[in-house]
Design a protein around this nucleic acid. Structure first.
Lengths: 129, 129
DNA sequence: CGGGATCCACCGCGATACTG
DNA sequence: CAGTATCGCGGTGGATCCCG
């Protein structure tokens, strides 16, 4: 920690992508934008539960990574549109693959969890019968 | 926030998968285990930078989700082997897709970042030339 | 060897208030 | 409308000690 602040950042590219994709809001925002350009308030409305701070922050990160564009129309009041870039759209494929896995296997995961949690909360001397 | 502690957990299955896959260590552990069963200390050695607490914690989570098995051999000292389940292995595919995207497009992302950061730190009156 | 328990520092994020 | 600025809390993870 004294030498390198984050030794993993430079290690694998997948780590960097996962840091983007893995956070709570990126996927939801990109899914919204997959339906076409969106204004700031539209995104805030479509993505239930997001704070305006996190929306701004995540959008900045996505723009920085070249996954979306931010277009300001200097009317009064100002209008800002966000839109996926080709790069952003290309990321949609692997994400979709992950979502397909989730949908296909979520049942098994949930079952596994039930089994695991059930085992843990058993009273040791008690027979399950 | 007063009604539901986490309204997103129940919303989409992809969210749950991403919470697993997205954290710092899951991918690294599963990649290690893709090479065959591993003991606790082997994992700790292969995955540089992980604390023993996070290794334990992440392994528990993976076991709970049915992605890995934990086998205890009651020798002295005890021996514990971790191994991917079929379910765990099946998750390898979508993850590999994501990693392929990362490798293929990391250059573009990095370029985009440089451009973005460059713009922001420009002195307004100064011409870039 | 393979953990569990505890303590603590950090900071991510929400809430709130203000602005062009 | 689309943000920025500030404050404060809670949870995450590292460090350390202990145990079967």
């Amino acid at each position: 920690m004294t030498l390198a602040p984050d030794p993993y950042a430079a290690l694998c590219p997948s780590r960097q992508v996962l840091d983007r994709v893995g956070d709570r809001w990126t996927i939801l925002i990109m899914r919204s934008l997959a339906g076409g350009p969106r204004r700031f308030t539209e995104l805030a409305r479509e993505i239930e539960g997001i704070s305006q701070k996190m929306l701004t922050q995540t959008l900045r990160g996505l723009e920085r990574d070249g996954l979306i564009t931010r277009t300001v129309t200097p009317t009064v009041p100002v209008r800002v549109d966000y839109e996926l870039t080709d790069l952003g759209r290309s990321l949609g494929e692997p994400i979709a693959a992950l979502e397909r896995w989730a949908v296909d296997h979520m049942g098994e995961v949930l079952d596994a969890r039930d089994r695991y949690d059930g085992r843990e909360t058993e009273i040791p001397g008690r027979q399950p019968r």
